[in-house]
């Protein structure tokens, strides 16, 4: 039953995550909330691991979640569920596109789909910020603004962002650098 649910949930993610691997992130947040298979913090860690490993982020995350929930069979079923819709849809689209390549209706639909995908990624970004940089629980307990933000992590994120924009290096370098800074300065404590 769990395997069937894994397949169906990741099939849904694969069906609606337009715009590449990152587009799967908001759907995975929803999945975390609805199923309890993993927490928002687990997902943030998974994204970091997925970014640091070869292959599309969405597929890596499906494999990770599948394995966490149901071992090797879960890994296979979740990954298959995620890629299944795109394989089916691309097969159909490649056939249809030959005939309707310049159809204004198809072009128009993408006018809406592209910004929607961006909005969902932005929404996931807000969730990631809330999980990693803001401590709402501590603020609720003390009502002190100093407890709401984690200045060290905010500075680290800002520095990494600026370096990423300036140096144009591979993201992997920044992930390892951030991990090293986290370990050296014990940012998790």
């Amino acid at each position: 039953m769990t395997l069937l649910r894994l397949f169906l949930e990741f099939f849904k993610v694969g069906l609606f995550a337009f715009g590449g691997g990152n587009a799967a992130i908001p759907f995975l947040y929803e999945l975390a909330k609805n199923t309890g298979w993993f927490s928002a913090l687990d997902l943030t860690n998974m994204i970091a691991v997925s970014e640091a490993t070869p292959g599309p982020v969405g597929v890596n995350m499906a494999s990770y979640v599948g394995y966490t929930v149901s071992g090797i069979p879960g890994l296979i079923i979740a990954t298959f569920g995620l890629v299944c819709p795109s394989v089916i849809i691309i097969l159909i689209i490649s056939y249809v596109l030959k005939r309707y390549r310049d159809n204004p209706l198809v072009e128009s639909a993408f006018i809406g789909l592209r910004p929607a995908s961006m909005a969902l990624i932005s929404s996931a970004f807000i969730s990631i910020v809330r999980v990693t940089l803001i401590n709402e629980e501590a603020y609720a307990a003390t009502k002190s603004l100093g407890d709401l933000f984690n200045p060290a992590l905010i500075i680290l994120a800002a520095v990494i962002f600026v370096l990423m924009r300036k140096l144009k290096l591979h993201p992997l370098i920044f992930i390892f650098a951030s991990a090293a800074v986290g370990i050296i300065f014990r940012l998790g404590e």
Partner: peptide
Amino acid sequence: MVALVLNSIIKLS
């Protein structure tokens, strides 16, 4: 992660 996703958003947008 925050910086990575923000960078992706800016690039894709």
